[in-house]
Each structure stands twice: as C-alpha cells, then as structure tokens.
C-alpha cells in the first residue's frame, strides 16, 4: 500500500510538472498570439491581414492534429530540443506545442468579445495602440482568459496522461503500466480518483478566480 502511495505521489508530481511547465509556456506565448490574432484582422488596431492569415493557418494546423499523433511526429524535434524522446521533459515539448494554439484560440474568443465601443473610447481619449492592449483589451478580457486557461489546464492533464502511455511518466503512465498492463484495478482506481480530484480542484480554483475578476 505504501509503495502504491509512493508511486502515486511521484507520478502526481510528474504530472504536475509536465502540465505546469507546458501550460505556463502556453500562457506566456498564447496571450501575445491571441492578441495578435485579434488585433491584426481586418479593421483591427494592428491591421495586418496577411500575417493574420498565415498565423491563423499555423494555429489551425496544430489544432487539427490529434495529440497522440502530434507527440509521435514531434519526436525528432523533441530529441533535438531536450536531447531525449523519453521522460517528463520530453513530454513537455509536444504538450506545450499542443497547448499554445489551443489556449490562444480560447483567449482570442474572450478578447474578441471586448466591446468595440471601449476601444473607440480609448482611441478618443488619446490611447496609443499598445495602451489599448494593456489597459483595455487584456483587463476587460481577463475573466474570460482565466476561464480559458482553466480549460487549457484540464485538457493538458488529460493529454499528459496520454503522454504517459508512451513513457513520459506521470499518472497516465502509472495507470497504463500497473492498471492496464498488470490488470491491477486498485492502481487504476486510485489514479482515476487522483485525476478526478486534480481536475475538480483546478476547475474550482479557476472558476473562483474568474468570478472574482469579473466586475460586469
């Protein structure tokens, strides 16, 4: 029993590490990407329709590849980047590459919903374009972005379990090796309980934060 707990704890930490690092990078890269996708469209404040289309297509490309296939297809790139195709850090690469466009698209929706009247008011008061992004678009879309990041985290917990299946470690790996390959239903059940608890916790925290930030 204590061995199971030990393994469970180590796997949980692996999962948290994979999800945490990939989601953090997705957050940092996804927000600028989303801002660009929103503001570079026709009539946007940084209008650049060509760049908008190119970037939009790239995002769509990565969004359309199933994670399992993306992971395998990226192995050479992963090896180049982290020196190995195995383990937690190797999983971080495809997870990040899947999470960034996913989160960018969700954040884009929130940014797009910011009332155009607010942008007009900001222009009328003498805001430059960067001010509009910093003082209008981002703060007004923040509750939606927090909600979107919560969804991203939950999706990445899912994906990281998939990564576990090809030897990345984490809760998915534990469940696959012990629960599936050794028919150990106790391990399987424990991992499911841990995953449910983790997802519930993330969702609850995200909802609370989004609610607190929403002043509308």
């Amino acid at each position: 029993m204590s061995l199971l707990l030990e393994r469970l704890w180590a796997s949980l930490l692996d999962t948290l590490l994979m999800v945490g690092v990939s989601s953090l990078i997705a957050l940092l890269a996804g927000i600028p990407l989303a801002v660009f996708l929103v503001t570079s469209g026709r009539g946007g404040i940084f209008e650049a329709p060509l760049a908008n289309q190119v970037l939009g297509s790239i995002v769509n490309l990565f969004r359309s590849i199933p994670f399992l296939i993306l992971m395998v297809a990226l192995i050479p790139f992963t090896r180049l980047l982290v020196g190995t195709s195995y383990g937690v850090w190797a999983a971080v690469v495809p997870l990040t590459i899947a999470a960034t466009p996913f989160f960018a698209r969700i954040a884009e929706v929130s940014l797009r919903e910011v009332d155009h009247g607010l942008i007009e008011a900001a222009q009328a008061m003498g805001c430059q374009r960067r001010h509009i992004v910093r003082h209008v678009l981002l703060p007004e879309a923040l509750p939606g972005i927090v909600g979107g990041f919560t969804i991203t985290l939950v999706t990445m917990i899912n994906a990281s379990a998939m990564a576990g299946a090809i030897g990345a470690g984490g809760l998915g790996d534990l469940a696959y090796r012990y629960g599936y390959q050794r028919f150990d239903s106790q391990v399987m059940l424990t991992v499911i309980v841990a995953l449910v608890a983790l997802v519930t916790l993330v969702q609850f925290g995200g909802d609370r934060l989004a609610q607190k930030l929403d002043r509308r």
Binding site: G117, A121, A124, M125, Q128, L213
Partner: peptide
C-alpha cells in the same frame, strides 16, 4: 494622439472599462 487629448468624447453607452 495629441489632438485627441484636446477633444473629449462621451458616448451613448458610456463605454466605461468594466474592470476598472
């Protein structure tokens, strides 16, 4: 931008920042 600072504007739907 300098010109717009010499001209104030108010709107039908107020256009206030809800997060501020």
């Amino acid at each position: 931008v300098a010109l717009r600072r010499r001209i104030g504007m108010i709107f039908q739907h107020f256009n206030l920042m809800s997060a501020k």
